[in-house]
Design a protein around this nucleic acid. Structure first.
Lengths: 152, 152
DNA sequence: AACAACTAAATTGTGCACAATTTATTTAAG
DNA sequence: CTTAAATAAATTGTGCACAATTTAGTTGTT
């Protein structure tokens, strides 16, 4: 009886991988960026580079700080990434005249042109997910809530 | 009127960051592993190392292949990580006698002992998430479904 | 004017992720 | 029995993430 109880306790430990939300989140996020890879290969972009380009397709000029706030990353990640986008001639990097500390990122004509090649990607990914729109929206809301609560 | 339509189209483009499930997933996953960091610092583990230890707390012996299937990662990621865990004396790495290709990972006494220090972590994370259990379960199910569909 | 406090990026170093390749071993087929 | 195919790990190289530090420039105070 005591043995049985102990066994039951062990089975329902808090440290069981299969019960961890965070591990599901982590694995799904990896799988997602893996699924993007073949689609983004056509554009010669990584997933994060694609995210940055998406911001710049909406706002053609932005500094590193603003970009970092928008996508929840810091200059340690963004500086080398932006240099790679600059090397591909998708963006320019110039210091602000008013404040020399600020690095201004501006999308180039090539960068703008790339948007057209990207138009089909969101739909391709929705197909790959094989999930209904409402399900995806619910998943997004759960992620957004978690992100907001963890960032407080 | 045509102008208005064009503006509306632009606003509802598929390439708007704020509408992307994947970006929410990606940001939430990063935020999650950031939130684990101070808790795991006490155990001198990274999030992925913690995941691997969690598997080994359940199954004290496992080879690299089995581990990789369980946590959806390959030897390219696992080999260096397991060497680091070996350096910390939390696991041993020995070749199988029956099949010399197979590397067997076995948890050490130190590794087992570390479990006790980890017991409080899942609950700490649940608190940080500030989300109800049902919400977290729904989020987990969404992630699991997405992972399964993307892995097919 | 001088200097402390602050801010924006960049840099440094560690540890993932993963594609692609290589090495070593085992199994299968002729 | 031998050689081709298959398998398990390891290796190599690129690009994130992020903590911690550094560099350079700005603002506020006296």
């Amino acid at each position: 009886m005591a043995k049985q109880l102990k066994a039951k306790e062990s089975e329902s430990s808090n440290l069981m991988l299969d019960k961890q939300v965070c591990f599901s989140l982590y694995s799904a996020s990896n799988a997602m960026s893996r699924a993007y890879r073949p689609l983004l290969k056509e554009l010669d972009l990584t997933y994060l580079q694609y995210i940055v380009m998406m911001v710049l397709w909406e706002h053609s000029t932005m500094n590193v700080k603003e970009l970092g706030i928008k996508i929840h990353l810091d200059s340690g990640t963004l500086t080398p990434l932006l240099k790679r986008l600059e090397a591909k001639e998708l963006v320019t990097r110039t210091r602000s005249q008013e404040d020399e500390r600020v690095m201004i990122i501006h999308i180039t004509a090539d960068g703008v042109a790339l948007k057209q090649k990207a138009e089909a990607i969101p739909n391709s990914m929705m197909c790959k997910s094989k999930m209904a729109l409402e399900e995806l929206i619910a998943l997004k809301q759960g992620c957004d809530r978690l992100l907001a609560n963890l960032s407080e």
